[in-house]
Nucleic acid binder design. Sequence first.
DNA 1: CGCTTCGTGAAAGTAAGTTTCATCCGTGGC
DNA 2: GCCACGGATGAAACTTACTTTCACGAAGCG
Lengths: 304, 304
Amino acid sequence: MAKSPKISASHEPGGLIVHISGLLPSLSPAEQRVARLVVADPADAARRTITDLATAAETSEATVIRFCRSVGMDGYPQLRIRLAAEAARRIEPPDARVVGGDIPPGADLAQIIATIAFNDARAVEETAEQLDPAVCERVVDAIAGAGRIDVYGAGASGFVASDFQQKLHRIGRTAFYFPDVHTALTSAALLGRGDVAVGISHTGTTSDVIEVLEQARARGAATVALTNFPRSPITDVADFVLTTAARETTYRSGAMASRLAQLTVVDCLFVGVAARNRARAKKALEATAEAVQSHRVGGGRRRA
Amino acid sequence: MAKSPKISASHEPGGLIVHISGLLPSLSPAEQRVARLVVADPADAARRTITDLATAAETSEATVIRFCRSVGMDGYPQLRIRLAAEAARRIEPPDARVVGGDIPPGADLAQIIATIAFNDARAVEETAEQLDPAVCERVVDAIAGAGRIDVYGAGASGFVASDFQQKLHRIGRTAFYFPDVHTALTSAALLGRGDVAVGISHTGTTSDVIEVLEQARARGAATVALTNFPRSPITDVADFVLTTAARETTYRSGAMASRLAQLTVVDCLFVGVAARNRARAKKALEATAEAVQSHRVGGGRRRA
DNA sequence: CGCTTCGTGAAAGTAAGTTTCATCCGTGGC
DNA sequence: GCCACGGATGAAACTTACTTTCACGAAGCG
């Protein structure tokens, strides 16, 4: 056929379905039957084979192909995947998520899971959004160039502190964490210029951590605070303040989302430090990974 | 071992991509090549014919078919359609974010932060999506009714294990965590019917954890595995399998996203258990909170 | 050292998609 | 009334895509 060079929307910008229904009147009767099936249930049509769809439309495969060409597709397979994509897009995500909130007493486990995950994910995202890259940069600088790094934290924040310590250690930075205040204090007393002390406290009011950080600062170490509350006491003894953005309120959410937010910040710092010397960090990581290899079964591959 | 009726999610309710990346390690090398192509760009894979995809993966069509069956599809056309749907559903990530992946060498800190946060948040969300509430429910039941709960984990998963232990402890459940394998083994030997043992291992191949879990199971305790890989060895010794959905690949992302995903699951279980007896849990939490009150400055209030 | 098992691709076989072509039917000219 | 003519249509031939079968080779096991 001599298709004239026509100027029109060949890209069908809106939905494919909309496009098809627009073309419907211009199609031949047999093609219209196909079109109607497709428009009525795109997902279903995507599942069918060409023969199947032709039968359903009471026509032949040839007509279905013609229909494909009529609506601007190369062939049936292309139509199929486009329909599948289209159908997937128009499904509304069933938002059973309980936003920002508390978990209602009668909640079943599925609701609990959805709520927790939603809040956790939000905390992570929002923390990243409000993190100041400039401050991070300076903290990374300090850690990357530090002689020694002490990480302090109590309770739930202690896990994060410990995690951070272990991470830094794995890339060859000299880092310490102390579960005990007294030990931490003695360690802080030994810090000096060029060293870094990181204090982690969700509330920013944990006196043990503040005290240790204060000590470290007095000795000349650079001090970093990681807290959810930018004006909490811990910020008074910190040269650099990094904040998380968990907005949990009730006891039930506990320190859950905040802990994830803290870990996210820790991860960012870690990667930042590692990026300062990729080669060395990579080597160190590989060495540590290899070290635990003998404690793994199956050599990495798992049974089929 | 005589595989006893194990409770785990056989369906793939969350994303198909997530499902595939979880199965990745249990696939044969040639199938893995196919899987990686599919995960890397589902939309592109959906566009390809089976021969095309096979060529791209440097394998034969037969292997692609085998891959389809391995991930639970009927055949290639079905996979194609599902991939197209999947690709359409996901919101295209803002280009600064490097999806699922590695951080480019030249990245500045802002990019690093965005990338990490994005992947972390995704891991949390996707983990929640694919968690099977029914399995969770049974685990919660077991824990809520347990005489004693042991939580095992090594390395990075050890932090998570420790966190879980502490959480359960705070709501009055008798829970233990052992940083040392030998201590853990002796503890496991003392478990019995009505007790619960939880083993956490991202890869599912940590022999220490598997060994301890096996011991616990032999003594009659209910065993729970938390891993990213549904067919890893640890699942052989677990009555209940819970999976995370972190799809990190490279060393750099390390165990970062997976750890957040694990914590999310732990949080869900924790809240689930706490919800079984709200009054008691609340009272216990308040008591523990009060206990550390004297270690806070400003009486918990923060200055304006 | 043979045995099995598993992963693999070549090739055969089947199904799906595409093209070709003859037919049908309505239309309009002679 | 008869005969082109042209578009719509489906049967059938054809091509491509998908699936199965099978044999080979490598890795693990007794």
